[in-house]
Design a protein around this nucleic acid. Structure first.
Length: 393
RNA sequence: GGCGACGUGACCGAGUGGUUAGGUAGAGGUCUGCAAAACCUCGUACGGCGGUUCGAGUCCGCCCGUCGCCU
């Protein structure tokens, strides 16, 4: 099984898997299981587990090797761009070893930067100086400036979000191009399966509470005390959830119980933001348990034909949707059919190679020129082989 | 039993006759070099019944409830 997978991997576009989900959703546990099963190596995509010495509070799992953990000291600067660069290097090396790279983590920006090839304007001496200068001014003034130079970004960011206003201005001024136009994606030399862990909200919140209690039991206070001897709580690393609150406790500003409650609260808020981030990515395959994840990866690696059932909402009738879909389906070697449903939607069943089905799905989200697609419901299933061609019904 | 205070949305909490206080939690969203960050949006409540008034969370009466004090 492993051998044939690797052979196939060696031929077509290289494949990688990403595991995403909110904090406390047991991403790492799942990733380890997948790594063992599919001969993979783990690359952590976690903006806090990069720090040495911050183990308990960031919930590191050191029972299995993971790349990009413990790579900088808490007082060192680190950025998405660095992460992206290191991750690309590792992915290349792991593929060369004939193994499956598995990106696992809850830092959505890090994941997307790698998966979608963000090209991030570089940091230079000028940019650093400019940023310092901008940071001294007040948000309102900066926003008005941004409005003039890049109104699109200004609208998107809003007048209060100073951090992002500053960055947008910095890039716009230095690159002499609006920030909103510089957000390019590069073609990425691999194909990714993104698995999202889906847990009911109440279960997740329960797990967060339990995990924080466990951190305390494992000595989060001691760990924080040790770190506090070397590092200031003003550092980004030290103001992470957990360390910040325990820091306040150590400085006698709040009680231990207050600190614990606060950590749980902040972690819940954080988990919610992570979910918002991942939910908007329609490529994510949401799974409920390890078996589903293993299935999804097996299909992905095996290049076995699969089936997908689509329901397309929007202005999709009388716009040559079915005809265009048929043409593409034929090009992609898919079989199945497209039909206008009675509820003003188009329904499509297609079977074929998963990669092609994904291309097809991507196209359906846009539709032909005249169509306006609001929503596409997709359901994956097992290949049946019942269709000999792709027809319009 | 008597006297007094109080009763505001999930929680905290302002408001004493005439727009939606606010905060927290919650939910939704934004996101391209700090992202465990930063920011945005949403939520019509005033214990019940009756009265006064053009108009009541805000005044009056009764009832219910909570708390305190007294007997």
């Amino acid at each position: 099984m492993k051998d044939t997978n690797q052979k196939k991997r060696a031929n077509g576009t290289p494949k990688i898997v990403a595991i995403v989900g909110p904090t406390a959703s047991d991403k790492t546990k799942l990733a380890i299981a997948l790594a063992k099963k599919f001969n993979g190596e783990l690359i952590s995509a976690d903006s806090r587990q990069i720090f040495k010495g911050m183990d308990i509070g960031t919930n590191k799992d050191k029972s299995y090797p993971q790349h990009l953990i413990d790579i900088v000291n808490p007082d060192e600067e680190f950025s998405v761009a660095q992460f992206q660069k290191m991750a690309y290097k590792l992915i290349g090396e792991i593929l060369k070893r004939g193994k499956l790279p598995i990106l696992v983590g809850g830092t959505g920006l890090y994941i997307d930067a790698v998966l979608y090839g963000y090209s991030i304007p570089p940091k230079t001496k000028e940019s650093a100086r400019l940023r310092q200068e901008l940071e001294r001014q007040d948000a309102q003034a900066l926003w008005r400036k941004l409005q003039k130079l890049d109104s699109k970004s200004a609208v998107k960011i809003g007048p209060h979000n100073k951090r992002r206003i500053v960055r947008a201005l910095e890039v716009t001024l230095l690159q002499k191009m609006p920030f909103s136009q510089l957000q390019n994606k590069r073609q990425v030399p691999f194909q990714a399966l993104i698995i999202g862990i889906n847990i009911p909200r109440v279960t997740l919140y329960q797990a967060i509470g339990d995990r924080v209690d466990a951190m305390i039991a494992r000595g989060l206070v001691g760990e924080t005390e040790k770190l506090a001897k070397k590092y200031s709580f003003d550092l980004p690393s030290m103001s992470s959830i957990g360390y910040k609150e325990i820091g306040q406790y150590l400085q006698k500003q709040i009680s231990l119980k207050q600190a614990i409650d606060e950590i749980k609260q902040k972690t819940r808020n954080f988990a919610r933001r992570q979910l918002t981030w991942f939910r908007r990515n329609k490529e994510i395959v949401w799974i409920e348990n390890a078996e589903q994840a293993i299935d999804a990866v097996a299909y992905f690696l095996a290049d076995q034909p699969r089936k997908i059932c689509l329901k397309i909402y929007g202005n999709v009738l009388g716009v040559f949707f079915r005809a265009s879909a048929q043409k593409l389906a034929q090009d992609l070697n898919l079989s199945g059919f497209a039909v206008n449903a009675s509820d003003q939607t188009v329904e499509i069943v297609a079977e074929g190679q998963e990669a092609n089905l994904n291309k097809f799905l991507k196209w359906c989200r846009q539709g032909p020129a005249l169509a306006q697609v609001d929503k596409v419901e997709a359901q994956w299933g097992k290949f049946s082989g019942e269709f000999s061609s792709f027809e319009i019904r």
